[in-house]
Amino acid sequence: MTPRLRQAREAGQEVWIAFGGEADQPWLRLLRRGFRHCFAALRDEAGWTVVEPLSGRLLVARLTVPAAYDLPGFYERAGLVVVGPFHPGPARPVRLPGLLPMSCVGLCRAVLGAGAPFALTPWGLCRRLVRILAGNRKKVLTPSGT
């Protein structure tokens, strides 16, 4: 492993998941209002990165704001629901690839790591993440039993 890769893996990251969105696609109207989309904002010592799946493409943007900037507060003032911070859990080997199609929920779960709660909709993911924060204040998402 190169020193740069080792440093990137050891760097502490914090993850916030933001929920919101209007129905820009007709099928999104089936989802709960205000919870039709989710995306991840990651902070490390160098700054902020936003990972957002859009219709037909994936947006990954490194923002030109300092790491101390209150990006979750900005999103909350914009009317989004923001849950976090979480420290992503380690990767875990799996025998078979996931069978669910790529979605905003699946991408957010992948960013959170192997210990992320199972959910199919943004509302379901939000409920489970809030429960994690409210329950035992466990912010590091690790697989069950560890």
Rank of each mutant, 00 (worst) to 15 (best):
G12P: 07
L120R: 11
G145M: 08
R57V: 03
L129Y: 05
A40L: 06
A41L: 12
T49H: 08
D70Q: 11
P3H: 11
D24I: 14
A46I: 02
Y75L: 15
V140S: 03
I17A: 06
R6V: 07
T2L: 08
P122I: 12
G89Y: 01
P88S: 00
R43T: 06
A119H: 06
R36N: 07
R137M: 09
R29S: 14
G98R: 04
R92Q: 12
L31H: 05
C108F: 02
G73S: 04
V81P: 02
R32G: 00
S103M: 03
A11L: 04
L125I: 06
W48S: 11
P90T: 00
V94I: 07
D24R: 12
A67Q: 10
A91S: 02
V83W: 02
F39R: 07
G113A: 07
A40K: 06
P97N: 00
W16M: 06
G106V: 01
G135M: 08
I132R: 15
G115P: 01
H37V: 07
L107R: 08
W48R: 13
V65C: 13
R92G: 00
G20K: 10
R6L: 10
A46D: 15
E52T: 02
H37E: 01
I132G: 05
S144E: 14
L59I: 00
W48C: 02
R6T: 02
L54R: 14
L63E: 15
R137T: 10
A78S: 15
A41D: 00
R29P: 03
Q13V: 02
P101V: 00
R43Y: 08
P85V: 10
D24V: 14
R4E: 13
